[in-house]
Design a protein around this nucleic acid. Structure first.
Lengths: 342, 342
DNA sequence: CTGAAAGCGCTTACAG
DNA sequence: CTGAAAGCGCTTACAG
């Protein structure tokens, strides 16, 4: 099965067939004015008839663009990334860019290789979806004048580059406040890695809610995790083994909440009867869990969409009205919480 | 914040600085012979010093390539896709291609748009990761002479294009046989959509194992699902509500198995004491579940890698030794199964 | 070992 | 309204 190179028509062949210049064909293709209605129609006919498509390498060479947006992410594992990607793709649907994706797998070597290749092969812009410190990438990009926007997590509270996120602190606050309103006083929290801003933001929101309700913060109820199902399980065991275990658990994300579910059932503790659980993110499957998970929703799709729109604006050389955008989180009440038993 | 276009050096500027022709610079860049050692060294110096990188649009225009591989998938939701992508990226790491990703979301309109754009913008090759009928895409690709390989599921047992998969039937057989060897006689199975070849393959393997053990196949124990966590839950309830419920459940994938876990716990049925559970895929989190899930492993990363290598070979115009490859599945025994209670 | 020149397939001032 | 021509930044026979 030898593959012959696909024989495609060029613009000049189209031009010759119609009996016009490539200039005119190009104008038609790019919807530029200055072409007679009849000529335009004839050209369009021939184009349609041959299913002619432009050569984008040539086009991009001429225009100094690549037609590509790059998305870098760490692991491509959670519902979080996928929600974002969905939004990115939606926004790109209209712009006509294609999306190149790259996962670093936390390997710095691999990351450098990617950066190099990206710079080599040219990109129109980059979307950074990295939960860890990405100062180095950001600096390189900044210095190479590659437009980019960072999504979600970051280490520094302020940055000199565009970012988009959601009101994490408020999410942490809202979740905790909700549990308190239900009557809970001992609320366990399983965070993400605490060197991440957004993990700390959840925790800060939690603290604030407790303080407002004049409930003392018990350090034993605060468990640090890594946002994985596995530590949802482990940290839950830890909380259950406390002399005075919590009556509710607030998980850092929905994967952890799934782990909490498993650990609780393992110990034969019913949700929400004997333990209330709140998640974070509102990933696709949360509504299907048994029982359906009450969680803090991050507007992931919208975040991806808006990040892309910001990037597209940067690429077009426009100024961003606001460089650091936060979309709002919200509480989605389902069936994993109720008042504690007395 | 007005962005200036990144000022990059061109090859001719490098050439001028060194005092040679672009021909020579090009040779050095492409590791071609016919350049004196000293000249080569001098050129390399200047290149390194200016961090010069080629313009790939120009390069590709010249060579008639795009440097891009396209991956189409449906939803980008499960661990399945992610495992495959991991492998794809690994293989691409060496080849130097970038990976463009596109999710159809089962929207035919969107799919057509993508196909069009792909053809427009030119791709070096396509990886099809579509669980449903993709005859139309395959035909278009075939006819446009775009190299491609299909991964995983397909409707037809034989195809006229390259495919890669795993021994699903054997996986279904092995899982069932294992449960039988443990002493189970009533084994429930939750399949994927039965119009998919691979769903039917699992089921056929299940049947075969039962028949070999002279256990009659009870249609009531066969539940059709959609590979989502949610139907893992629903179908489990159905199985439990049977007059004579199963003592073991074989889920079509690990997401469904997670649903099975939730439904069982909801009904206070312990795993593996009162119910054995086997999954399918061996997605990253299975080892972390409570209890760790016994499952049929598909070598996802390897599948993605091999698919990419096949594609790269096609792109290079080489002949594929074998057009339809199946890697082997295997049983990963963890802690979700044991002998049934008597 | 080195370079002049053509050309990949487009777009874009510019002239008519 | 239409087209000739230059040029984007490379690679590749070909000549020396």
């Amino acid at each position: 099965m030898e593959l012959e190179p696909p024989k495609r028509l060029t613009m000049s062949e189209i031009a010759r067939e119609v009996g016009v210049s490539t200039t005119t064909v190009s104008k038609v293709l790019n919807q530029l004015p200055g072409v007679g209605a009849k000529t335009r129609a004839r050209i369009q006919d021939v184009i349609a008839q041959h299913e002619y498509v432009q050569n984008h390498s040539a086009r991009h060479l001429r225009k100094g663009q690549s037609g590509l947006i790059d998305l870098v992410l760490m692991r491509l594992e959670g519902g979080y990334d996928l929600g974002i990607m969905h939004g990115v793709q939606e926004a790109l649907m209209e712009s006509g860019h294609r999306l190149a994706v790259f996962a670093t797998h936390e390997d710095e070597e691999v990351e450098r290789l990617w950066l190099r290749r990206l710079l080599d092969q040219s990109t129109d812009g980059v979307l950074l979806l990295l939960p860890y410190e990405h100062g180095e990438i950001a600096n390189t990009l900044l210095q190479q004048k590659v437009p980019f926007v960072a999504i979600g997590d970051r280490n520094e509270p302020t940055t000199n580059f565009p970012t988009i996120g959601s009101t994490i602190w408020l999410g942490g606050y809202t979740a905790t406040e909700y549990l308190i309103s239900l009557g809970h006083r001992r609320i366990g929290i399983i965070t993400g890695p605490l060197h991440l801003m957004t993990s700390r933001a959840r925790l800060a929101g939690y603290r604030e809610a407790l303080e407002r309700a004049s409930i003392p913060v018990d350090p034993a109820l605060i468990c640090e995790g890594t946002y994985l199902l596995g530590d949802g399980i482990q940290q839950t065991y830890k909380l259950l083994d406390l002399a005075e275990p919590p009556t509710a658990i607030f998980a850092g994300n929905d994967a952890q909440a799934t782990g909490v579910y498993q650990a609780l059932y393992q110990r034969d503790i019913r949700i929400p009867d004997a333990m209330s659980v709140v998640g974070f993110d509102d990933v696709t499957y949360t509504a299907q869990m048994a029982p359906p998970l009450t969680t803090i929703r991050q507007p992931l799709v919208e975040m991806g969409k808006m990040a892309t729109q910001m990037l597209l604006r940067l690429i077009a050389g426009q100024v961003l009205e606001s460089k650091n955008v936060e979309l709002s989180t919200s509480l989605v009440i389902r069936q994993s919480c109720q008042a504690p038993r007395t």
